[in-house]
Design a protein around this nucleic acid. Sequence first.
DNA 1: TTCTTAATGCAACTTTTTTGCGTTAAGGGG
DNA 2: CCCCTTAACGCAAAAAAGTTGCATTAAGAA
Lengths: 185, 185
Amino acid sequence: MSTKERMRFGGRSARIQAAVHQAVNDLSTEMDRAEITVPMIAARAGVTPSTVYRRWGDLSELMADVAVQRLRPIADPADTGGMWSDLEAWAEQYMEEMSSPVGQALLRDVLGTLGESDRPEQCCQFTNEQLGTIAARAAARGETPFRVDEVVDHLVAPLVFHIIFNDREVGPDYCRALIARLKAR
Amino acid sequence: MSTKERMRFGGRSARIQAAVHQAVNDLSTEMDRAEITVPMIAARAGVTPSTVYRRWGDLSELMADVAVQRLRPIADPADTGGMWSDLEAWAEQYMEEMSSPVGQALLRDVLGTLGESDRPEQCCQFTNEQLGTIAARAAARGETPFRVDEVVDHLVAPLVFHIIFNDREVGPDYCRALIARLKAR
DNA sequence: TTCTTAATGCAACTTTTTTGCGTTAAGGGG
DNA sequence: CCCCTTAACGCAAAAAAGTTGCATTAAGAA
C-alpha cells in the first residue's frame, strides 16, 4: 500500500482532458464565449457533464485551463541578428496576439479565475522565458543583455495594461516607442 | 407620447439598486466571493432574483458593477506640497488598496466581464483624473508637470501588472523605484 | 389627477449544477 | 501474466440556478 495519493496522467484521463480541451477550442470558434456552457462542452467532447464539473469545478476554471495552454508559446522568439530587433519583433507579435479579440478573451479567462490559482503567474513565466531567451542569445553574441524584469515593467506591462483596460490603442508604433525608451537608458 | 425610451433613475429603481449593491457588499465581507449567488443577493436585498437577472444579466455583470463603484476614488489625492511627493503618496495608497485581497478581487470582477462593457476603461479614467489633479496642482505651483500617460505606462501599469499576475511582490520600495525612474528622465 | 409604460413581483418552466452509487480502467504487487 | 486497489468515469435523481409570461406597481409626463 502506498501512502501517497496518486494522480493519474496517462490513458483515459489524458484522453478525456484532450477531448474536452478540443471541444472548448472548437466551440470557441463557432460561437460567442459567453454562450458556451458546460453541458455543451461535455456533449461535444463525448463525456458527461458531471465529469467536467468534478475535474474542473466550473466553467471559468476550465476556460482558464484551456486559455493557459493556448497562451503557451509554441516556438522560441525569432533570431533577427540583434537583441533590440529581436525584442521588437517579439513585442509586435505579442501585441498582435494579445490585442486581438481572441487574445483579449484568453487574457480575461486567465485573469477571471476566482479561487486561488497560479495560472496568471504561469503566463508571466512564459513571457519571462521568451525574454530570457532573447537576452541569453544577446549575451552569447557579446551584446550587453537587457534586464528581463525591466522589459516586463516597461514594455510588457504597459502593453497588457492598455489591452485589458481598453483605454488606448496599441500598435507597432507604440511598441517601438516603448522599446526606444528602454534603449535610451 | 415621447419617442424616446426613458430610463428611470429615481425612486424605487434607485432604492433597489442601492439595496442590491449593499447586499453584495455585505455578503462580500461574510463569505468567499466564489460562493455568492444571485438568489442569495436577492434574498438579502429583499427583491426577487428575476429582478436582478433582468437588470444586470448575470452575477459577473453585477459584481463588476459593484466593483467599479468601490474602485471610484472618494477624495482627491493628498496635497503634500510637491508633485513627486504627491505622486509617491498617491502611488503607495493605490498600491496598498489594489494589492490587498479585496482590491485584487475588485480588479478581477471588473476585468472578468465577458461581454462588451466600458467598465475597465472607466476605472482607468478614475486613475487618469487623480493623476491629472496632481499634475494640474503642480503646474499651478510653477512646477513642470509630468505627463499623465507616462505615469500610467511606467508606474501604474507595472504595479497593476504584477498585482493581477501575482508574479512579484509590490511594496513601497518598488513604488519609489518606479517613480525614481520617472524622475530620472 | 390621469395616463402611459418601465420596472418589479410572482409563479411556472427550463437549464444547469450537485450528489449518490455502481462501473471502468490505470497503476502497482504478487 | 493476473489480481487488487482505487482514482476517475457514467448514469440518474435531486437540488439549485436561470428564464419567461403575465399581472401589478409606481415613475414621469400631460
